[in-house]
Every structure is written in structure tokens, then in C-alpha cells.
């Protein structure tokens, strides 16, 4: 067991180090995220009623789009230099190795994204309830996007055209978007967001259990 934890840590460290060395991908998609969010007040004006109604949902949509942009980096470099084949050949379960890579993606992309959205929320003077709801939904939702996305990346990596990836992810991630925005709207009305939170948590648990398995299976199919 401890051996498995060790190998998980090794892969995690390796991916974090790689991401840290070649920062451009993650930083670019985070900058994209910030730019998209600043577009919304510019288009819809800065009246506080509008801002409170629209911005939280827009932050979520931007997060979804930025995630789509960043997802390819989970496997791209491994696919290009062939180290993904080494991983599938290793004697450790591929599911475990893949989970470490997904976790690394969430740390390098999901966490900064959450921090940035909270900062943007404060800058745009959203109410406290909304910021808390935004935080809760993002912390539950972004891992789901990373997990779901990793499967789709494994299916589509190396195929011509990057649009296919977005085409596959967006319909599947709609429940996350819906529950999150409903929760935020409830929070804006000072209502409880417990139900939506439970749903998101449930989806997250489901994704954590199934997505690494599916990703591993997809990688094996792609490399067969």
C-alpha cells in the first residue's frame, strides 16, 4: 500500500515540477480566464444589481472554458515524448498513475483558478454570501471538470483539431454548471445551498471513482 502511495507521490511531484518549469500553458489559460471575466462588466455595465446577478454565472462559464483550454496539458507532453507508453507498461496500475496526473492538473490549474475567481469576486464587490457559494461550488466543481476532462483528453489527444475535445466536454459538464449556478442564485437570495452542494459532492465522488478508470482504459485503447 505504502508503495502505491509512494508512486502516486512520485508522479505527482514529477508533473508539478514539469508544470512549474514550463509555466506558459497554465499561466496562459489563467490569463485567458481573467480576461474573459473582465469582458463581462465591460459589456453589461457595472450596476451592482446586474453584477451580482450575472457575474457569478459568468465566472463559472469562464472557468469552464479556461479548463477546456488547459486540459490538453494533462497528457500532451507525455504523449509527444512517448512517456505515456512507459506509464502504461509500468507494473503499477495505470489508474493510480493517471489519478496522480489529474490531481497534479487540479493543483496547478484548479487551485489558482479558485483563488483568482475569489479575488475577482471581491474586486467586483460581490456580496459575501455569493463569494462563499462561489468558493464552495468551485472547490467541488473544478475537480469534476479535471476528472471528466482527463477522460476526454485521453480519448482525443493527438487527433486532428482541438475543437473535438471541447465538443465532448461541454455537454457532459452541463450538470456541474447548472447545480453551481443554481446554488449561487440561491445564495444571492439568502437561501440554503445545502441541496446543490450535496449534489455536486455526489457527482465529485462518482467522478473520482470512475474517471481514472475510464481514463486508463481510454489510454490503453489509444495506445493499442
Amino acid at each position: 500500500m505504502s508503495e502505491y502511495i509512494n508512486i502516486f507521490n512520485v508522479i505527482l511531484k514529477r508533473d508539478l515540477m514539469l508544470a512549474f518549469r514550463d509555466k506558459t500553458d497554465f499561466i496562459n489559460s489563467l490569463i485567458f480566464f481573467i480576461i474573459v471575466i473582465t469582458l463581462f462588466p465591460l459589456t453589461f455595465g457595472t450596476k451592482s444589481t446586474i453584477v451580482n446577478e450575472i457575474i457569478p454565472g459568468m465566472i463559472w462559464i469562464s472557468a469552464l472554458l479556461a479548463t477546456c483550454l488547459s486540459l490538453e496539458t494533462i497528457f500532451r507532453s507525455d504523449f509527444e515524448d512517448g512517456s505515456i507508453e512507459q506509464l502504461t507498461l509500468s507494473r503499477y496500475p495505470l489508474t493510480l498513475l493517471v489519478s496522480a496526473k489529474i490531481f497534479a492538473h487540479w493543483i496547478t490549474f484548479g487551485m489558482p483558478l479558485i483563488i483568482i475567481s475569489l479575488l475577482m469576486g471581491i474586486l467586483l464587490s460581490l456580496s459575501n454570501e455569493i463569494i462563499i457559494a462561489l468558493f464552495i461550488t468551485l472547490i467541488l466543481g473544478t475537480p469534476i471538470l479535471s476528472l471528466l476532462g482527463s477522460v476526454m483528453v485521453a480519448l482525443t489527444i493527438g487527433l486532428r483539431g482541438g475543437m473535438l475535445l471541447n465538443l465532448l466536454i461541454l455537454p457532459l459538464s452541463m450538470p456541474v454548471l447548472i447545480f453551481s449556478t443554481v446554488a449561487i442564485q440561491n445564495a444571492a437570495l439568502n437561501q440554503s445551498i445545502i441541496a446543490e452542494t450535496y449534489f455536486l459532492a455526489g457527482i465529485l465522488v462518482l467522478a473520482i471513482t470512475l474517471a481514472p478508470l475510464a481514463t486508463a482504459a481510454a489510454l490503453r485503447i489509444r495506445l493499442s
Binding site: 471528466l148 476526454m152 452541463m174 450538470p175 447545480f179 462518482l206 470512475l210 475510464a214 481510454a218
Partner: peptide, 17 residues
């Protein structure tokens, strides 16, 4: 694989909507 993920997702999508 995509269809299997989709079929798990369909009830979730329906319920969320």
C-alpha cells in the same frame, strides 16, 4: 467509453435540468 460515460451522465443531466 464515451457512450458509457454519457449513459451515466444522462440521468444526472436530466435531473439537473
Amino acid at each position: 467509453i464515451l457512450a458509457l460515460i454519457g449513459i451515466i451522465n444522462i440521468p444526472i443531466i436530466h435531473y439537473s435540468v
